[in-house]
Write a protein that binds this DNA or RNA. Sequence first.
DNA 1: CGTCTAATTGAACGAGATCAAGACAAGTGG
DNA 2: CCACTTGTCTTGATCTCGTTCAATTAGACG
Lengths: 250, 250
Amino acid sequence: MAAKSLGARGAAVDALLLKLRARDSVSEKEERALHEAVGEVREFGAGRTIVRSGTPMEESSLQLSGFSCRYKDLADGQRQLMELHIPGDFVDLHSFLLKRLEHGVAALTPVVFAIFPHEGLKKITEDHPHLARLLWFSTLLDAAIHRETILSVGRRTALARIAHLLCELLVRLEVVQLAADDRYQLPLTQADLADATGLTSVHVNRMLKMLRDDGLLTFRNGEVVVHDRARLQQVAEFSPSYLFLDRQPR
Amino acid sequence: MAAKSLGARGAAVDALLLKLRARDSVSEKEERALHEAVGEVREFGAGRTIVRSGTPMEESSLQLSGFSCRYKDLADGQRQLMELHIPGDFVDLHSFLLKRLEHGVAALTPVVFAIFPHEGLKKITEDHPHLARLLWFSTLLDAAIHRETILSVGRRTALARIAHLLCELLVRLEVVQLAADDRYQLPLTQADLADATGLTSVHVNRMLKMLRDDGLLTFRNGEVVVHDRARLQQVAEFSPSYLFLDRQPR
DNA sequence: CGTCTAATTGAACGAGATCAAGACAAGTGG
DNA sequence: CCACTTGTCTTGATCTCGTTCAATTAGACG
């Protein structure tokens, strides 16, 4: 009931291409191979589960719009988000070789995905080694983002964690042209941010107030407006180097 | 000064093969291709830096013995380990496509590595797609371990974090035959464990005492002895499913 | 208008940090 | 052989950042 077919197949890989072309060149032949690997397009409502932990998988989902997340829950109900996903992200490409995921994927807002059957991805690893390396690269980017998250939840203060997350989203959204002029739509709740940062929603609220009162950023009505990017990055100890935004042969 | 050549090239890929064959079959042809991709063998003393963050890289290191880690530091000197590495781990395979690492790699004990020039790895992606997928898989395993670490530092209590880390190491070391009978050598300091779990060494000490007093495990003189594996896993909320220990075609 | 859900703020609490001191083992140099 | 490091482990006392509990406000929506 969550799935529905759309007529969006033509533009399906656009955001992915923006993401990949920020890191390397993608030939027209490779672009065509990607297009051919797309199966159907699916929509999910906010809050829906997209992938359930442990389920055997035979396809992967490229996010076209909205916000989703990887998450794990503890027995006492506490939730931790592993990664926030934006358009252009292959939210479960890891399952191509893992064959299942050890975490859930959920829609935080309404989302649309283009589905890639693993069969077609396997063919890419055989016929298009460079494109295959780019897909591999995108999973390595996930890992690099994971590592920065480990640093955040392990050692950064609550204030720096929030600031860092919002800095990261600004940069990642700029790459796929969903952020400009130091602002972007982020239709998440403070509880979502809490789950992403390992804090409580109460404390997230206080930290957002501090950032607001200090003139660094405003987060209201699902929009983030960064008022002082330099100072925000300083508070967060944010440097975009872990996002590997340099074009070079991979 | 940290590098030295050894005569260990013959057995260089043994631990890696144990690790891979726990997840899929590896043909003799693929085994040969791996052997051929090995360059020299290098040794590092305890505490040495193996990879410095940001340095352009043209080779990757397969760990043959000892313990190393990926780490990042904050400006105030706090350190967070992203992952502990054991024999059979490709500690910086991510640099094959990232071209540099955004974190450091350091030896926690004396370590030995087999060096794989990226040129040879690239050739594997072109001539041995299945073997390439296995190498890709091993980086996805790193990502899965990262995600479990995010859950640990984000939401688990101090006691559960320590318990979980020691559970994980037990299982990973069993795979490469460096643990048996619920015990293994772990020549790290309590400060190392603190950096790995996002705690202070003082608190690690207290948690280890609790685990000891509760009869769950002993960590002394660089050896971990698990006395009650079932109960330890329960305290940690540990399940090995995120280590993907099932053999199947990848 | 009532009924949600999300945001906000205050007050008390607690897990883990910080500060400090001592114990113990392994060198190391005289 | 012994004084003297040096690093690691251990334990106690105090402090603090973030949690927990609780109450209020503000919107959105039927």
